[in-house]
Simulated scan of single mutants.
Amino acid sequence: MTQRIEVLADPEALARHVADWTLQLALSRPGTVAIALSGGSTPKRLYHLLAASPWRERMPWDRVHLFWGDERFVPADHPDSNQGMARGALIAHVPIPPANLHPVPVDGTPEEAARRYEAELRRFAATRPGLPLFDLQLLGLGPDGHTASLFPGTAALEERAAWAIAVIGAKPEPRITLTYPALENSAEVAFLVAGADKRAMLQRLREGDRGIPAGRLSASRPVTIFADRAAAP
Rank of each mutant, 00 (worst) to 15 (best):
M1S: 13
R4I: 09
R4G: 00
I5P: 00
I5F: 04
D10N: 14
P11M: 11
E12S: 14
V18F: 14
W21E: 12
Q24R: 15
L27D: 04
P30R: 13
P30F: 02
G31D: 15
T32H: 11
A34N: 13
G40L: 04
S41I: 01
R45C: 01
Y47L: 04
A52Y: 01
W55G: 04
M59A: 07
P60E: 11
V64E: 07
L66V: 14
F67H: 11
W68F: 12
V74G: 04
H78C: 07
P79A: 10
P79M: 10
G84A: 09
A89P: 03
P95H: 10
I96F: 10
P97A: 12
P97Y: 13
P97I: 12
P98F: 05
A99Q: 15
L101K: 08
V106R: 03
D107F: 04
E112S: 10
A113K: 02
R115S: 12
Y117E: 11
E118P: 03
E120S: 14
E120D: 14
R128N: 11
P129H: 09
L133Q: 06
F134C: 01
F134V: 02
L136F: 02
G142C: 09
G145T: 13
A148P: 06
F151H: 02
P152T: 07
T154V: 09
L157I: 12
R160P: 00
A161L: 12
A162R: 15
A162I: 02
W163Y: 13
I165N: 00
V167M: 07
V167N: 03
P172I: 10
P172H: 05
L178Y: 02
L178C: 10
A182T: 05
N185D: 15
N185M: 01
S186D: 05
V189E: 01
A190T: 12
F191W: 09
L192R: 13
A194H: 06
G195E: 03
K198C: 06
K198P: 05
K198L: 07
A200E: 15
A200F: 08
R204W: 02
R210D: 10
P213F: 09
P213V: 10
A214G: 04
R216F: 01
R216V: 02
R216D: 00
P222M: 11
V223H: 08
T224G: 00
I225V: 15
F226A: 13
A227V: 12
A230L: 14
A231P: 05
A232R: 12
P233L: 11
